[in-house]
Simulated scan of single mutants.
Amino acid sequence: MSAPPDLYGRRPTDRLWKFATRAISAYEVMTRFMRSETPEQPAKGLSMKLVVRKVKTEAEDVVSLTMSTEDWSPLPTWQPGCHIDLRLPSGTERQYSLCGDPEDRWTYRIAVRKLGAGSQEVHAIKEGDLVTVRGPRNAFPFIDVPRYLFIAGGIGITPILPMVKAAQDKDWHLVYCGRSRDSMPFLDEIAELDPARVWIRPDTEFGVPVSGKELLTWALPNTHVYCCGPAPMIAGVRVDRTTGLHYERFSPPPIVDGRPFEIELRRTGTVLQIPKDRTALDVIREAMPAVAYSCRQGFCGTCTTKRVDGGDMRICVDRGRGRIVLDM
């Protein structure tokens, strides 16, 4: 079967085709039910081999990947805010927000800006390549409320875009910021939304980065604010918004009121000093460059390490007092 031609990688979307595919799907589900079977679908959290069906340049240094199973079988369902873990050819894993259509059961879409070594590996992936994916998982849940303000900075549009599309029957506004229009992905899709509810705000057209107060122009008292972008943008929003704020950052969170402590690596007896302004992961990586980690924000679980006292430690974010002995 050839790759689907539409924006999200789906099959042709004319009404007759939609009716036919839904009828076939319904028939397959019914016959499986009659045979006391369940529709074949990968379990969430298990690794899946997916084929990259489409690679598209979405903006300057940003590409999107549209992926499906090899036989076009249904993928695990997801909701706006979900991400997947993508295992890269080097063996490292990175988390990327799903930015396609949750109603599309056959494909996943992610978009990645070229920044570091991991993203460079993603940009080297070509159509037809096999990739390993785990998920989807949701660390940025989208709740049902009457009024939303969506704020996205650059590649932070990826988890926000499906939320905006899901909120079309609600009172919503979107503020989308970036260095320049050329650097901002999915402007073509955003152009299809109600222009009265969207503010595209590139720095190059205003001369200065946007302030927190500007970002919150549409934030009425009963508005839930969903924000994703660089740390300074999120910090600016948090100064003026303390309730109804949901945010996801794509960089490690800053260390606030950190205290120094010690880490002992049980297998070698090495004792490491963790300063107040560094994470355990940062220091451990200097002694053990191959230590596993991914999100650096505490939610993926890749760096979780056993303590000798029986507990667990997410070495990318967790801190301690005195000396902590790790089973590593």
Rank of each mutant, 00 (worst) to 15 (best):
L7Q: 10
Y8H: 14
R11L: 13
L16F: 15
W17Q: 13
K18S: 07
T21V: 15
A26M: 13
A26P: 11
M30G: 07
T31G: 01
R32Y: 10
F33C: 10
S36W: 06
S36C: 09
S36G: 05
L46R: 15
V55D: 00
A59I: 10
S64M: 05
L65I: 10
M67F: 13
T69Q: 08
L75A: 02
T77G: 11
Q79P: 00
C82E: 06
L88F: 12
T92M: 10
T92G: 05
T92Q: 15
E93S: 13
R94I: 07
Y96G: 00
I110L: 06
V112C: 04
G128Y: 02
L130G: 07
T132W: 06
V133Y: 02
F140E: 00
D144P: 11
D144Y: 07
Y148P: 02
F150G: 00
I151F: 04
I155E: 00
V164F: 03
A166S: 14
K170D: 01
W172V: 14
P185C: 04
P185I: 00
L187K: 09
L193Q: 07
A196Q: 11
V198H: 04
V198N: 05
W199N: 07
W199Q: 12
P202Y: 03
G212Q: 03
T217I: 10
Y226Q: 01
M233F: 06
V239N: 04
D240L: 14
L245C: 03
F250Y: 09
S251R: 04
D257Q: 11
E264P: 04
L265P: 00
R266T: 09
R267S: 13
Q273R: 12
D277F: 12
A280E: 08
A290V: 11
C295I: 05
G301Y: 03
C303G: 09
M313W: 11
M313D: 01
M313A: 06
R314I: 07
R321I: 15
